[in-house]
Design a protein around this nucleic acid. Structure first.
Lengths: 286, 286
DNA sequence: AACTTCTGAGTACGCCGTACGCAGATAAAA
DNA sequence: TTTTATCTGCGTACGGCGTACTCAGAAGTT
């Protein structure tokens, strides 16, 4: 009874798929299909005519569209038009748009260059390279931050990067769980800060108003609007409080996280220095 | 010439608005309209009949839909149906869906309770409360992470929270720019990690496969698929590497960031310890 | 040559946001 | 009270979307 599929029948509740318009194809089916296309190289059985397209052609066309005109401009009709085929032709290669997005995701995550750049670096240097590389990728493909949502299919490229980072974090006295926490935290910082940046830049570009102008324009409005108390701390900020660029802000935050991680690693190395180390209720080195 | 609007004429390039379907209403106009509705309380001029709805009714209905059935289920038609009015009736109150999202955003960010919870805490305690509160909000309203994108309109609630954090970071020896960096880093960590969590939970729920099963199922596939080298580090991970819950993982990362910030603050307090300290090229203990 | 299977693609359906315009209600102006 | 200006709710329609269904014809196998 997958036909005339209901709008939301996932057990997840609020966190559902992306576009349940007329969608047959549950999330589980999509994940299976994506994994098969990512990892599988089933031979062509070759009975009928040869295919006129390849998966790579479709994916790279879709990537170009998303990079150039944004995710909203990416539609099956548009991809097909660009490839000069009928819309439904694409469905001979992919079961749906969701799978296409999965393939696009893995296609842009190629850790080969980053790994090469890490030769001879210690864990801190490696994490810096990986973080910057990840950040650069999000800036180059802003649609990634609109899409990653609920499509964590692991492809070859994704996994290779993961393997690399896990291995560089070995032998530092961190538990397996902590090594995962390191990666999630670094990635979280990258995603969060970069998302805020794109967020912000889009607004600035759309409104044509600089930061200082924006705030100065709205501060009088708000201090009048809220009768009880004004906003002294905001008002007292110096003009150049917003002057630090996003790159520098990100770097600042990254270094704070790395400092914190390094402190933990060093405290593990000489556990005699600090008696119990309350700090954070850490996961018990013992 | 706004009619038959072209699909993408923003100077931003890739980072464009959300749904340029048939949209009259540029981003600048949207921001103005949203600010007017958020801050303004223009009186009814009262010539025609009285209005049958209020903005709050519309916004809270939309919030219920988004929280319950996800952002994809939120449509103007759905909101109108739920309110038992015609679809176009909503456009008497709002110029479009984008503005509705702006209003929803400000509606869910009410810092009053969090501020009350911070009495007597130092900067670190305050940042902890704020971070957890923000995280709780994202978990309660997952659509926030799909929506914030490119709509940073500042409403009364948003600004009150900002003011509060800025003021608690005063007097610690941090520059204005660094205080902003602290806020952006903490928020970035919250957004990034929580997004990864929702991300992950949706996938697990949809596929019905636990983490360990997922990895174990695909490890043989991938080591066979990629001829050069296997994935020893991933394979060597203990079973419970994934056992740390998301709350604990987030807390771990948060404490690392706070440790790093605290180290910087303390190094500023006794500047005799370290010679010049150029502030942005941070300590680098080794 | 006959058969089988696969290809590309036209058509159609039900969603979406929203521009346009109209009938009726209502308060101000006469 | 009558007139008039304005505002109300909202029906209809347009162009977009993802994709299910269907079928003619091409290209292999037998």
């Amino acid at each position: 009874m997958t036909t005339t599929g209901p709008t939301s029948d996932q057990p997840t509740g609020p966190t559902q798929s992306t576009k349940p318009t007329t969608a047959e194809l549950t999330d589980a089916e999509r994940i299976s299909a994506s994994l098969a296309l990512l990892w599988g190289t089933q031979e062509r059985t070759a009975r009928g005519p040869k295919r006129g397209l390849t998966l790579d052609q479709i994916v790279s066309t879709a990537l170009t569209i998303a990079d150039t005109d944004g995710l909203d401009a990416l539609s099956m009709r548009r991809v097909a038009r660009e490839l000069r085929v009928g819309t439904m032709t694409l469905y001979r290669y992919l079961p749906g748009k969701a799978v296409l997005l999965d393939l696009m995701l893995d296609a842009v995550s190629d850790p080969a260059k980053d790994i090469a750049q890490c030769q001879g670096k210690d864990w801190r240097g490696v994490l810096e390279v990986v973080a910057h590389s990840s950040r650069r990728r999000y800036l180059a493909h802003p649609w990634l931050l609109q899409v990653n949502w609920s499509r964590p299919v692991v492809g070859p490229n994704t996994l290779a990067g993961l393997e690399f980072v896990v291995s560089t974090l070995a032998g530092l006295g961190l538990t397996d769980q902590e090594r995962f926490s390191v990666m999630i935290s670094i990635d979280g910082l990258v995603v969060g800060v970069t998302r805020a940046q794109l967020h912000h830049e889009a607004a600035v570009a759309a409104s044509g108003v600089t930061d200082a102008e924006f705030w100065n324009r709205h501060l009088p409005v708000l201090s009048k609007a809220m009768l009880s108390g004004e906003y002294p701390a905001m008002a007292a900020l110096s003009e150049d409080a917003y002057g630090l660029g996003w790159d520098e802000t990100f770097e600042w935050g990254l270094q704070r996280v790395l400092d914190g991680i390094q402190a933990l690693i060093e405290s593990r190395r000489q556990p005699a220095d600090q008696p119990p180390e309350p700090a954070s209720q850490p996961p018990r080195p013992a």
